[in-house]
Design a protein around this nucleic acid. Structure first.
Lengths: 113, 113
DNA sequence: TCTTTGTATCGACGTTTGTCTATATCGAAC
DNA sequence: GTTCGATATAGACAAACGTCGATACAAAGA
């Protein structure tokens, strides 16, 4: 979970050609990012928020987890490329990056594209 | 990872409406199933195999893991509903179930449907 | 500068997960 | 029934992960 664009270059279509060990590892890392309920809810909350953008401060209380925990999950999502981040004053705003999500999605395609 | 059709009823579109804690948990479990490199390679190998069907015995050696480990992963995939299973004599044949994979995929859709 | 408030990092802890070896179970053939 | 080969389960162990409280850092305002 290091590179910004982790998800971007992870995802040859799974069912089309046999996956190499390296591709499988990359893809697995990407799917593990969305394999956590808190991160899924964060994505969902941010995407459905009016304006498509949410202050991190609004995400702590509704999930009932500590601020460090939410911060950690936001970081994981950001580093995977699934979230964009913008600082405005003291606040940090997040929005969902649809491209990488689509990349992940395409990996699961059951018909050639 | 209990029910056969785990993936079937896991997956409201993530970005359309805010996910409940329960939906998030179900969906996370489903994504964790495909969040392992060995399971991804198994899916890939089975799907790309001529006939779309593979004997479990053919899956052990190419992955370089022990037979119990492969058996374990096949079980996880099967119980998630991602693999179909058929016993023929001593052998067990697996094939990919495209429906559940599509269900998982649809959860990541960035456009309404 | 000092305080305040929002955010990120650190270090620790318990749980989950993937792997192994050993062993049990299953099905077929003798 | 016994044996043999394929598959599944049990139990153990290490590594990875999610969570927390404490603390550091950043930005704005007094």
């Amino acid at each position: 979970m290091k590179n910004i664009a982790l998800v971007e270059d992870c995802c040859p279509p799974l069912l089309e050609t046999a996956l190499s060990a390296e591709d499988a590892e990359r893809m697995a890392v990407a799917f593990r990012v969305v394999g956590d309920p808190t991160r899924l809810r964060l994505l969902s909350m941010i995407a459905t928020h009016p304006g498509g953008e949410v202050c991190a401060c609004e995400l702590v209380e509704p999930l009932g987890l500590s601020q460090p925990t939410i911060s950690h999950h936001l970081k994981v999502l950001f580093e995977a490329g699934l979230l964009g981040r913008e600082r405005r004053g003291t606040w940090v705003f997040y929005r969902v990056s649809s491209g990488p999500l689509e990349a992940l999605r395409s990996a699961l395609a059951t018909t050639p594209n």
